[in-house]
């Protein structure tokens, strides 16, 4: 099956999931105790104000109508009207989408760059001091709260030795990359903690595979054997770990973006929650979930790219 048709097919299969996502995001804010309008306006709001806001948010309608209205808003791309920004949610989210995507992408690349050599080293020299050191390092890395590590890195690499900016995003691509180094590093360390572990164990398994002996019997140098034969065949389980973890990473951007002042979806979510901007929170929840679903799709495509035995079906 050609790749385009496969993708299309998968996208069609996603429709029920996407409907489910909108339903959950919708219900999330409706089933909560308390009336949103009262919560938004606080004790200052009069009964008239509350009624007005309820009408504005469509909260005076029956639940099923509210949901249909929400679907309509999604279909038109507006995702409803933001209370804080007094503008359509859709375009605001779109604007904030890119910094988050860059952050996720950059940190994933960094994680891969960290993972591959360290996992290979740990696997080839298993039981050695290097192996134990790598294991210990990543147990610590996995246990570190991202915001704390971020603060320490900023202290070290932005204040004491000013190499990277403290916060912000920048205008040109280079500036942005420069700004994203520290936040991406924080995320990448946590990701690599999981991927190094998984890649190490699959490399150890693959190292005793018959075809690795065949490769050695050809007289290939050990480095050629590792990179051409062992690595590729070890990647499958690591790709799935990476795929699952990316959903975690996307969630983690909420904390990291807030810490580093990156104008992405995560920092928007935090500020919208503080501002009780329900339509915005609703739109963001849907956006985050859709991102995760798309990344799962990419993970499946990566399988196909890495392993010719995986059939497109």
């Amino acid at each position: 099956m050609p790749i385009a048709i496969y993708c299309l097919n998968r996208l069609v299969q996603l429709i029920p999931v996407l409907i489910g996502i909108t339903l959950i995001a919708f219900l999330l804010l409706r089933v909560m105790p308390g009336d949103p309008a009262t919560l938004i306006l606080g004790s200052r709001g009069t009964a008239a104000d509350i009624a007005k806001l309820n009408a504005q948010l469509g909260l005076d309608q029956p639940l099923w109508r509210q949901y249909l209205l929400f679907l309509k808003d999604i279909a038109t791309g507006s995702f409803g009207e933001s209370i804080a920004y007094k503008a359509s949610v859709g375009p605001l989210i779109w604007e904030r989408l890119w910094p988050t995507i860059w952050l996720v992408l950059f940190s994933t690349v960094m994680a891969v760059v960290l993972t591959v050599p360290l996992a290979l080293l740990a696997a080839v020299r298993r039981g050695s001091v290097a192996d134990a050191g790598i294991k210990l390092f990543f147990i610590v890395a996995m246990s570190m709260p991202s915001f704390w590590l971020g603060i320490l890195l900023v202290l070290l690499l932005s204040i004491v030795v000013p190499v990277f900016p403290v916060s912000g995003y920048g205008d040109t691509i280079l500036e942005r990359l420069h700004h994203l180094v520290l936040p991406s590093l924080v995320i990448a360390l946590a990701t690599a903690a999981l991927t190094v572990r998984s890649l190490r164990s699959s490399v150890i398994a693959v190292l005793s595979a018959d075809y690795v002996d065949t490769a050695r019997s050809k007289g290939l140098r050990s480095r050629q054997v590792l990179w051409r034969h062992v690595l590729r065949n070890s990647l499958m389980s690591t790709i799935s770990v990476l795929g699952v973890h990316t959903s975690w990473v996307i969630g983690g951007t909420v904390v990291i973006e807030t810490l580093f002042g990156i104008p992405g979806l995560g920092s928007l979510l935090v500020s919208s929650i503080s501002a009780r901007d329900y339509p915005m929170v609703q739109g963001l929840t849907v956006t985050f979930a859709v991102l995760v679903v798309l990344i799962n799709l990419l993970t499946d495509l990566a399988y196909v790219a890495v392993d010719p035995r995986v059939k497109l079906s």
């Binding site: 002996d213 019997s217 007289g219 590729r232 392993d307």
Partner: peptide, 24 residues
């Protein structure tokens, strides 16, 4: 020894199903 392997001494294995790299 890698100069000898494959060039002067070659080897074939018991299980041909697993002796070839599945991704190459």
């Amino acid at each position: 020894l890698t100069e000898i392997r494959g060039a002067e001494i070659a080897m074939i294995f018991q299980d041909p199903m697993s002796a070839l790299n599945p991704t190459m």
